[in-house]
Design a protein around this nucleic acid. Sequence first.
RNA 1: GGGCCUGUAGCUCAAUUGGUUAGAGCAGAGCGCUCAUAACGCUUUGGUUGCGGGUUCAAGUCCUGCCGGGCCUACCA
Length: 572
Amino acid sequence: MSRILITSAIPYINGIKHLGNLVGSQLPADLFARYCRARGHEVLFLCATDEHGTPAELAAAKAGMPVAEYCAQMHRTQAKLAAGFRLSFDHFGRSSSPQNHRLTQHFAGKLAENGFIAEVTEKQVYSHADGRFLPDRYIEGTCPNCGYDKARGDQCENCTKQLDPTDLIEPRSAISGSTDLEIRETKHLYLRQSALKDDLDAWIDSKTDWPVLTTSIAKKWLHDGDGLKDRGITRDLDWGIPVRKGEEEWPGMEGKVFYVWFDAPIEYIACAAEWAQAQGLDEADWQSWWRTDAGADDVRYVQFMGKDNVPFHTLSFPATLMGSREPWKLVDYIKSFNYLNYDGGQFSTSQGRGVFMDQALEILPADYWRWWLLSNAPETSDSEFTWEKFQGGVNKDLADVLGNFVSRVTKFCRSKFGEEVPVGGDLTEEGAKLIAELDTRIAAYVAHMDAIDIRKAATELRAIWVAGNEFLQTAAPWTSFKTDPDRAASDIRLALNLIRLYAVISAPFLPDASAKLMEALRCETADWPGDVGEALAFMKPGHSFVVPNTLFAKIPDEDREDWAERFAGQRT
RNA sequence: GGGCCUGUAGCUCAAUUGGUUAGAGCAGAGCGCUCAUAACGCUUUGGUUGCGGGUUCAAGUCCUGCCGGGCCUACCA
């Protein structure tokens, strides 16, 4: 047994996430967490909402609520949806927690102490009408290069030229439209990542087993141009963690807050502290996961995220931890994902294009989504959601292959032997062959899960389900029952136990279906199978069960057509 | 512009890291079965591995030049 710390990239507070967000971090993290627990490991699985920054302030203003209240409400919404998808977080925290305030300020203090913070005075655009400094991309104007009149202050979307806000002709606030802008001097703190470049480089080089997607992005940032650049970690905002040097005031930084991407990864640690508090544990309990001087040396730490998050997790956050010169646990493995597209384009939060977490659960139970999304996870390249593929995958894999197997076995047994595991007969030749095949296949499945090769694991799991149908076909208990009922009894006993085995090993993908099967079979223990032969003899003759209701209903064409139309554009 | 990834059957993906005849699932065709959610099983059609060069005893895999797709490029988070 080992101790495994798992974190999912923390979703931004600003609204409900779509399926692309879900499959890129939280869902695969949950799959792995459930699998590790099922294998008997001690797991701490953490996630949280990322609550600071300009978009949160603007979303709150739009909703006519104080930002703290807005975040609290959206946190509850996101927590509820996470529960709906059966995301098994040990704690779902908030980056605005007191624990994160304290830790973020602590890290800033340590970094300053060790010379990794620079104070830089720079010029920023201030909007009088909005009463705030504007991030570059919240300034709009005419592009000096191509004349496009909705160019943003960081880049022109029309000609893709990189811009500085001061380059824009007739700049205006993207928030209010006001042209009453002023360039003001303001002082900010920079994390001197460049001073830690060699340490980071050597550390990344040592991670030879990481996905190429992860290391190539890190390497690019380390070696592009002049190498790793320092990064501003403060902002002129009201909503955020006040800039402090540990417990002390930070002269000259009054009224400023840390930038979300400084405090958001630190929430991974703070979240463990929140977890300990919620569980009534003490400091040492969460520190044993995070401090190598307090027991975290034997922890394996795995992070899950979309590719857009990689630079922060491979560089900025490790730089924060390394620069503290304190014994914090660094990540051991980063599993990163490409994007899931929606029917030929991108999922779009702003345009309401695609399926969002709340809508998905209104349509179908979580297991349907979990299976399709995970078995089509964008691991090696971007992948695409279409309603045809979704319908095809779900109907074939879940309804026909798995669901129908359960149905044919339990119903056959009920009609011939009654609702209990039949008595009589010895293991047949077909049964022995099945056990041998499952031995190999389950070993392959386990190897893929250990390696977090999700699509391959799903493919193998499906093959394991298929093996059950093949077994029934060759054993043909409906025929043998007429001449040799003991033989049929033995094969059906094996098949009923096979359903239990499926429930156990499929649980990381299909937690609800798994629970439903275990209940129908009146089984409580769900130990991971060691010896397959023993696992398939778990339920003894005479063990009673009930025939479960349809495990997975098929998606009819009419529904598919209806949904395709409903989610094509503007969300209502 | 620069960098990275990618292109394999109609579709979605594999191919033990250079090693026999490139494999699965879906879709299509045929046969079988009748326990089951018109489900299941077996067989089968289908490939000049984007295109052209090169290295090698051997290339889907390595090098190179084109062509196409995607992502990142540091103030969205």
